[in-house]
Write a protein that binds this DNA or RNA. Structure first.
Lengths: 101, 101
DNA sequence: TGTTACGATAACATATTAGTTATCATCTGT
DNA sequence: ACAGATGATAACTAATATGTTATCGTAACA
């Protein structure tokens, strides 16, 4: 029907600035790393989503939404979850770590 | 009228867990540092709030609310502002840096 | 004085997150 | 087969962030 590209890699998609702005891309990389550490830390502590909900003051559906990246959380929500898992956030200068090769 | 404490330091307030939970305290310290760097970086680049609004895709009132801590922003909002200022966020283990002496 | 740029803020509309309750499918272990 | 725990998700409400437009006071300056 057309020569439109149908299949592409995740990297191709992420680096296409017509669809993902640099700031957005930076946030997505951050969030993927964040969620990874969150899930890993929660499981390492042997906590269920309900357990984490209890200690963080959130609800289990909120934890599930977070872990499946169904929402872009607010800062305070993030800290409520990160703190009992032993993490916090830091502001650092951009280092172009995701610039690719 | 009563012997209720009326005057106290900011530290006393922040360390009173009946009013500020550890997670909340961690977030507040983070946000104070964050806003400080944001404002400093914006001014170092000679940008007005309107300028930053333009390059970040936000509106000037949103920038003003951010800088005066009148709202707890969402992660994507944060990245929209931080990126053009040359900053990003990192997830790091808690280090009890604010534990006080 | 008049002008301009600036940050703060009010007022309202819109969008999105989080709370709440409930349910579902799946897995594990009995 | 059954029971219990788990994660995902639907549906709805409440809370809050952001957009939008406008205005205000102040500072800098001609």
């Amino acid at each position: 029907m057309s020569d439109k590209k149908v299949i592409e890699t995740f990297s191709d998609y992420m680096n296409d600035e017509t669809r993902v702005s640099p700031a957005e891309r930076e946030r997505i990389y951050f969030e993927v790393a964040l969620i990874g550490k969150m899930i890993e830390a929660r499981e390492a502590k042997g906590l269920s989503q309900r357990d984490l909900a209890d200690v963080s003051g959130l609800k289990q559906p909120a934890i599930a939404r977070l872990e499946s990246m169904k929402a872009t959380p607010q800062i305070d929500t993030l800290f409520k979850v990160l703190y009992p898992l032993g993490y916090t956030l830091e502001i650092v200068p951009l280092s172009n770590a995701h610039a690719g090769t």
